Amino acid sequence: MHSTALTPGLMKACQRLAQPWANVGAEVTPHLLGHSSNLAVALEPLPLVARIGTGTAVLRIDGQHAQREVALTAWLAQRGAAVGQPASAQQAGPHQLQADGRTWTTTVWRCIAVSPGEPAAHEAGQALAHIHRLLHDHDDDAALATLPGADWAVFDELQALLLLPTVQASAPAAQRAFVAEEALACAEQMKTLALPCQWVHGDAHLNNVLNTSAGPLWVDWEDATRAPVHWDLACLLAGARVLGTHAAWSEAALAGWESVAGPLRSADQLAALALCIRARTLFVCAWMWALGLNDETRRTRHAARLAWLGWRD
């Protein structure tokens, strides 16, 4: 997260964006809800939230990811999928906000009433499987077929991250070369399995599913990509199997997914999952370099991921 993300200038830009949508006499007041690789801002008193690409703007500058996210979630919501919903077509964007001498890609979403506690893991996995089925069964729908994005674009993004000047200046060259080579090897092995690609969430882990009275809702589709569904399962499982984080929840979510989609039993299916977990871990390593290893937890987890991948000093 860049320090500029929390400036009064950016908050004022959010206010200017939303003020025309308010009732006469009501003033929109932006309030920070949270931030990690993006910034979430409540647009009170409107039942809307602005989501601003801040950390991810180190690479994603053309608005394409935001455009795809809005279109894909709107399509899914129309079919009853358990996803966070964009605001109206006029409001959702993406918008390009001007603040602090920069342009910030911003989307607008309907507020979600979040219930206390973690979402039920089994139900979250089931909801993800139903989403996958919808996207598979309608892959030739014009609204999906025209979305920007190529199969396995995650590997292209990973290599682009390693070429960022900030990453090249801060990450050891030998480690960067190791991650790049391992990613190329994963990509080649995945191609030999020839599994079908479709639209998937792209970042399907515990922090991107909300607990609500209506059940788990999958949110934050900025990383949506075309890949086998195993990529989403790897996102569910990588933290648990590599770092040991949220292990019980992640495995229960996988069981929920399998209760709908069927168990992963064949050699090719299990190989695809293992390769995707490895590729996902490489992808996260590259993004952590790009976002900055600016606290001890990030540094410790980054080192643990590299060690799990086989890096040795």
Rank of each mutant, 00 (worst) to 15 (best):
A194I: 08
R305K: 13
A42D: 15
L59I: 11
L32V: 11
A180Q: 03
V284D: 13
L48I: 07
A120S: 06
L193P: 05
R299K: 14
A252P: 06
W218E: 00
H31D: 12
V70G: 05
E182S: 10
L193Y: 07
T245D: 15
L233M: 13
L217V: 03
P263T: 13
K12Q: 11
I277A: 11
A57K: 02
Q64S: 15
V24I: 09
R278H: 06
L32E: 13
A240T: 09
S266Y: 04
T106S: 11
A150D: 15
A238C: 14
V114F: 04
L147F: 10
T7A: 08
E69L: 00
V28W: 05
V41L: 04
A177V: 00
V260E: 12
L282M: 07
R265Y: 02
P30L: 06
T29W: 02
R278W: 03
P47Y: 05
P148A: 12
A303D: 13
M11K: 03
P216A: 01
N38G: 07
A224C: 14
Q126Y: 05
C186P: 01
P94Q: 11
L59V: 12
P45S: 11
A286I: 07
L97W: 07
V219R: 01
F178G: 03
P116D: 15
G292L: 12
P116E: 14
N23R: 14
